[in-house]
Design a protein around this nucleic acid. Structure first.
Lengths: 230, 230
DNA sequence: AACGCGCAAAAAATCGATATTAACGACAAA
DNA sequence: TTTGTCGTTAATATCGATTTTTTGCGCGTT
């Protein structure tokens, strides 16, 4: 229906990414942003039409999303978008706090100039996108948070955090963009985190980070009350 | 005329498992046990022969294993078994300690009769397989450890732990079965963990669990010194 | 000899088609 | 009415074949 942000270079030169990769990224965005509803059946044929590609890349993409906990595979009956519920939301929030706390502290313990500069840079890009009204704020927001953890030296942990980030932000989309979380002074929270990092104060940085997540979490939790979390 | 035995059951639909599931489980075992070497190229055609199945299930299984960190996907050049190295090994061990500690404490905090009994039961089955010399000791060993964490109420965390378990045990296989870790008194260590759980002493249980892992880790680390961790 | 170019072989990625399986509804028997 | 069976239909899972991409080699040029 809507034209998807797939590179409109279907089959000419410079196929920078495979059909599978495209399908994976597109589907993930569709699910995270809630354009595909939680619990919704994901029929291969339908998605084939929507993504303009063959069934094989779709299947492979869905398999990958299964491992990201964004899609469930039903025995011999195909796939569906992962359902949502309060318990799941709370687990994601809590786990995220535990794991990001760990990763952030280790990043700081391994502090390097390059890492610190990259954190500042990521922050700048995010802020700029925010004021520009550029469409890629969400991507840059994730990039900022991941940049903070990137120096922990544990790639598997970072991957876990990245997955949890996506799972969490999905709830935000589902709760509705209305809640536009600029309503809180999120910028100040981001700044506080960054400042603590630059000041190399791990406890303070962690405090700010977790409080940032928990505030968003509490806010979301309230909104979710009014939503059917079947 | 004899009445034909119209089967009330349609047909002997033996295994509920799909070709993909079979391929996934088989390949995972092959990689975890080291029958497929770390870094080894995994050619679809070759695996097709070996597993006696089509290319599609193989591809899908490999995709899934990619998310388990057991297989790497190279841009447009197929798959290979994940390489190994000391850094990776150390991350797995350390992360495992962090996450299992967390899960174990939560399991104990949520303690129920059923869970406690299941832990005892899992332990019994593992011990029995050990003395029987039954071939499924490894599976039961994993089952025991997972049973300890199962009550934490955070399924995503359990899944992470399960993945890390597999990644870790792979190193044990690679280090060689020669090291037969019965050489240490592992049984006593298991018993100590279980006892602490039954006694509901979280700190003690966690101590025993982590020491169990760290001892195995240190042992393995020594063995890995003599192995090419390219 | 080293380097780049282009062709041929191999492998991966993808597509279209077939075979399997589950969902649905009608219909007959109890 | 209720229950259980049988087709019918829709969707999935899988296969075989085609298209793309990579790899490796040979050859000519500097």
């Amino acid at each position: 229906m809507t034209i998807l942000p797939t590179p409109s270079v279907p089959r000419d030169k410079a196929p920078v990414s495979s059909a599978t990769q495209n399908a994976y990224l597109t589907l993930r965005k569709l699910i995270v942003t809630g354009e595909l509803n939680p619990g919704e059946k994901l029929k291969i044929e339908t998605l084939r039409d929507r993504l303009q590609t063959g069934a094989s890349p779709i299947r492979e993409a869905l398999s990958l999303l299964t491992s990201d906990n964004l899609v469930e595979r039903l025995d011999q009956r195909g796939f569906r978008a992962a359902p949502i519920n309060r318990t799941n939301f709370e687990e994601i929030l809590a786990l995220r706090c535990e794991l990001e706390d760990m990763a952030l502290r280790k990043s700081l313990a391994n502090r390097t100039e390059a890492w610190e500069e990259n954190a500042v840079l990521s922050h700048h890009r995010m802020i700029r996108a925010q004021s520009n009204g550029a469409g890629d704020f969400e991507d840059l927001h994730k990039a900022f948070h991941m940049a903070l953890l990137a120096n922990c030296g544990w790639p598997i942990l970072v991957k876990f955090c990245s997955q949890l980030y996506d799972l969490n932000i999905r709830y935000r989309y589902i709760a509705g963009k209305a809640m536009n979380y600029q309503s809180r002074d999120v910028s100040a929270e981001h700044m506080a985190i960054l400042d603590a990092i630059v000041a190399r104060d791990a406890d303070l940085a962690s405090d700010h980070l977790l409080s940032h997540y928990k505030k968003t979490g509490a806010f979301l939790s309230g909104i979710l009350d009014g939503i059917d979390l079947a």
